[in-house]
Design a protein around this nucleic acid. Structure first.
Length: 273
DNA sequence: AAACACCCCTGCGGGC
DNA sequence: TGCCCGCAGGGGTGTT
C-alpha cells in the first residue's frame, strides 16, 4: 500500500543507484500487471539507454533516459522495488527484472498485480500522460483558492474528495483518514460546506503528515540493496487508521470505523466535526 | 456533471 | 484441522 510518501522514499533510495547506469537486459514474468508489461517498447526505448533522472509524480515513479524516453512505474497496492545482486534467486511475484551495467538488478515485485509499468517513447508529451492528475499536495498549486474552487457546489464527502486524484494527486485511503483527523474535520463533511479557514487547516495538515511520513521513511531505509521494497515507511505513527475501538489519542473516545465509497474509514466522532 | 458501483488480483485472518 | 468468505485499496471504466 505505498502512498505518496512511500513512493518518494523509494525514489530517494533507488535514484543514486540508477542515475548514470544503463539497463542491459530485461526479464519479465509474462503475466500482465494492471496493464501488460510493454516488452517491445522497453527493448526499443529503455534498454541500453543511460538513466538521467528518477522522478515522482503523484504515486508514479518516472525513470528518465538519455534519449528522452521514460519508464513509468506504479506500485499499485502490493508493488515493491528492490536492488539485488544478479546471482540472487528471484522471488515469487517478481514481474520485471532489469539488469544494470554494474551487475545489480532492479526488480519489480507485485503480489496482486495492481501495479503498472508503462513506457513513454522519446519526446512524447509527459504532461499529456499526467493531464488528468490534480496538483501535488506538497507543491505550490495546492492552495485554499484551488480547493475551494474545485469543491464548488459539490456535495461529495471530504475524505472521498481528498482521495480523488483528479483533485489532488497521491493521497490514498490511509493518509486521507489521517489528514481529516489531524484537521479535526469529519470525513463525511460535504466539501461545499467547508470554509476557507478549514481548507487552510486541511492543506496544512496534509503537508505536515506527508512530510513527516517521508522523513520517517527516509530515516529508516538506509540500504536498498536486498531491501526488496521492505517497508521502511510505516514508522509514522498512524493515529486513527486501523484503530477501530481504540481510544482517540486526543480525547479518549473510541475510534469509529465506517465505510465510505467502499473504503475503510476511521475517525473520532468527538474530535472531528 | 457528479457520485456512485464494480473490477482487476492474491494473501490473510476470522468463523465455524 | 481445513475450508469459505470478507477484506485490504489504486485506479480505470461503466452506470445512473
Amino acid at each position: 500500500m505505498p502512498e505518496l510518501p512511500e513512493v518518494e522514499v523509494i525514489r530517494q533510495g533507488i535514484a543514486p543507484m540508477l542515475i548514470a547506469r544503463t539497463i542491459i537486459r530485461v526479464k519479465s514474468s509474462g503475466l500482465a500487471l494492471r496493464l501488460p508489461i510493454p516488452r517491445t517498447k522497453i527493448e526499443r526505448y529503455i534498454k541500453d539507454q543511460p538513466i538521467t533522472a528518477v522522478r515522482r509524480r503523484a504515486k508514479y515513479l518516472l525513470v528518465n533516459m538519455a534519449n528522452n524516453a521514460a519508464l513509468i512505474i506504479h506500485l499499485g497496492m502490493t508493488g515493491r522495488l528492490g536492488m539485488f545482486r544478479a546471482d540472487q534467486s528471484p522471488a515469487p511475484h517478481d514481474h520485471l527484472c532489469c539488469l544494470l551495467d554494474n551487475g545489480l538488478e532492479l526488480r519489480f515485485n507485485d503480489t496482486r498485480r495492481f501495479g503498472s509499468i508503462q513506457v513513454l517513447p522519446p519526446d512524447s508529451d509527459e504532461g499529456h500522460f499526467f493531464a488528468a492528475l490534480g496538483p501535488e499536495p506538497l507543491g505550490d498549486d495546492f492552495t485554499v483558492d484551488y480547493m475551494q474552487n474545485r469543491a464548488g457546489k459539490r456535495r461529495q464527502p471530504l475524505k472521498n474528495f481528498l482521495m480523488n486524484s483528479h483533485v489532488v494527486a497521491g493521497i490514498g485511503n490511509i493518509y486521507a483518514n489521517e489528514i481529516t483527523f489531524a484537521a479535526s474535520i469529519s470525513p463525511t463533511r460535504t466539501v461545499n460546506k467547508i470554509s476557507r479557514r478549514e481548507w487552510q487547516t486541511i492543506i496544512t495538515s496534509t503537508r505536515e503528515i506527508l512530510q513527516k511520513a517521508i522523513a520517517a521513511g527516509g530515516s529508516t531505509i538506509s540500504d536498498f540493496i536486498n531491501a526488496g521494497g521492505k517497508p521502511g515507511y510505516f514508522q509514522l505513527q498512524l493515529r486513527v487508521y486501523g484503530r477501530a475501538g481504540e481510544p482517540c489519542p486526543i480525547c479518549g473516545t473510541a475510534i469509529e470505523k465506517t465505510s465510505m465509497a467502499g473504503r475503510a474509514t476511521f475517525w473520532c466522532h468527538h474530535c472531528q466535526h
